[in-house]
Design a protein around this nucleic acid. Structure first.
Lengths: 343, 343
DNA sequence: TTGTAAGCGTTATCAG
DNA sequence: CTGATAACGCTTACAA
């Protein structure tokens, strides 16, 4: 069907040498073994035939595919494209290709995907869908396949990767609200099974304590997923209770967006009646009404870093402990001073 | 380093048969050649050894990689993730993998990417970065590599793929504005080198004519890219002129968003002073202030359709003419009735 | 019904 | 320095 590509054999025939000589002449690491003049003739012939090495044959022979797998929950979630772009921007120049798979946060789909990627001989895996309890990761680790987590991590020891500094980001958010005079601060916590959800919740509690702000009962509600729908549901719970909070810290931007909907339905204005904060600073969240105050995670940088880390492991380095990237407080219109409220 | 996978040879040794027998027993198409009982023993042994076929060896032997390349301008642009998701949702169940490459709309990067993908033996290419004049596509077509365009097309004849019905979408948008009483309608046109930019401009003109609305000079301004920045620049041009339009039809949502900025800077309110429309209905554009009236393109469906089309070509079918998916008019808050203006 | 053997395009280990 | 040759793991005529 498609035009057959030229092979080493074709080039060898054209130049009149053995194909192994062509292989050597074309490989920078072995070119020095060949007479300069001959190497040049070979290069010319290869160019003329538009010779392109067959990656499958290369991989079969060397057990190196120059491909890495990327497991993400859903490419349609705006925080992942920048991570993927970061990955590709460091991997592509090194002639690696990234195999992206969506897992929908489903362990079965993830396992399926890993099996398929392994059968394709990926040199390593970048995992953006780690669960705190993640048997699949344990298996991967045991099999000594290079893996790196990004964005989320697992409780598993010995894992390498790069995530965001939840403690730091949450501290900044809470300090910001406390500074605005808020004392009744609620939290819509992300899924407890994820390091992001759990980490932010823990940090939220720690920060309230540090500021000597009481944690009222019923002031923390747990979302089942990082979604607008869940944010709306959880905010409803918070608002249904007797005295609504003056500020809501949402586990991420999506939850905050949902919270905003609930606020609107209750006739509460943001930030006049209730301040709300997000987390992640996903694309276009600055253009909403009101623009969201949030913690900006360094998604693109995380992608680049993850790529570097996986390459190191592929080169044989042991996984370095999970790194944490700084989270930047972005103050926008969804937060304002606390105003006295009728009891 | 990583645990070596079991091979046909390993399974064959365990069962005590020849590896070719194992190969047949494991392939649904040839399983009937094997005694049912033996086939079962082989399947059991394969399971026990966690046998996974080596995709590289398979590809080398069969010249089928079960991989397709996807060329997109930038994964970070919100219209592409749903397309990619659509692709994957039909390809993954068929055990295909998608190699995604960002080209940044740069023909050199695209050519580079295609070369690398071909060297990896992709069975076909889905191209979301087609230019109206696109020598690379011509080359691909000449080489009989299965290709399909998506979202944008080329002027090249004989190309298959799926795009959006620009004429239809633009007609709905213009009719909507005319219906609101607008007569001074401007257009921020997308890049003329792209089928989307050119197609929407042509349709815009055709629709004005059909409604017998005069096209005032200086009322169409050309953007160099589909970006907010360009939208802002172009809107400035429109507003700098003597009598500003009462409505602006932007070539896509990004251009509209930029236009909105310019409006704000000029102290013009939307939609009270000037209505504005986008195109694409990219994610979260409904939550802006004002929420954008736009033409919704069927990105996910386009991705799914493109996958089907490329599979057909891989199976040997000739490329079918480029299809057009319906564009849905989404009326939101950024458009309102035209109000009389001081001259 | 099963075994034999060739070959896909490379790289790597031998000789010469 | 260059050539011959053996894998890498798989599919597929062809033999038995």
């Amino acid at each position: 069907m498609a035009k057959r590509n030229a092979t080493l054999r074709d080039v060898a025939a054209l130049v009149g040498v053995h194909l192994s000589t062509v292989s050597r002449a074309l490989d920078p690491r072995t070119r020095h073994l060949i007479t300069a003049e001959l190497a040049e003739r070979i290069r010319a012939a290869a160019g003329q035939l538009e010779y392109r090495p067959n990656a499958m044959a290369y991989s079969l022979r060397t057990r190196r595919s120059r491909s890495i797998g990327a497991l993400i929950p859903d490419i349609t979630n705006p925080i992942f494209p920048p991570i993927l772009r970061g990955l590709e921007d460091v991997l592509a120049p090194l002639h690696y290709v990234t195999l992206i798979v969506n897992t929908d946060n489903d362990p079965d789909q993830a396992a399926e995907a890993v099996a398929r990627l392994r059968s394709r001989g990926v040199d390593g895996l970048v995992i953006a869908c780690a669960m705190r309890h993640d048997p699949m990761l344990a298996q991967l680790l045991a099999d000594h396949l290079p893996i790196v987590v990004v964005n989320r991590t697992s409780d598993l020891p010995g894992l390498g990767g790069v995530i965001h500094d939840e403690a730091h980001g949450m501290a900044a958010l809470v300090a910001h609200l406390v500074g605005l005079g808020h004392r009744r601060i609620a939290h819509i916590a992300g899924p407890g099974a994820l390091s992001t959800g759990a980490g932010r919740l823990a940090a939220f509690r720690a920060e309230l304590a540090r500021h000597a702000v009481a944690e009222a009962p019923g002031t923390i509600v747990q979302a089942a997923r990082f979604s607008e729908q869940e944010g709306e549901r959880c905010a409803e719970l918070l608002l249904a209770a007797g005295r609504p909070p003056t500020a809501i810290v949402a586990g991420n931007d999506l939850l905050a967006l949902g919270g905003l909907q609930a606020l609107r339905r209750h006739g509460l204005r943001c930030p006049d009646d209730v301040s709300i904060t997000g987390y992640n600073d996903m694309a276009f969240v600055e253009r909403r009404a009101p623009p969201l105050t949030t913690g900006r995670i360094a998604t693109y940088a995380a992608g680049r870093r993850a790529a570097r880390l996986i390459l190191q492991q592929i080169e044989g380095a042991a996984p370095a402990p999970v790194e944490r990237l700084a989270v930047e407080l972005i103050v926008r219109g969804s937060t304002g001073p606390a105003r006295p409220r009728r009891q």
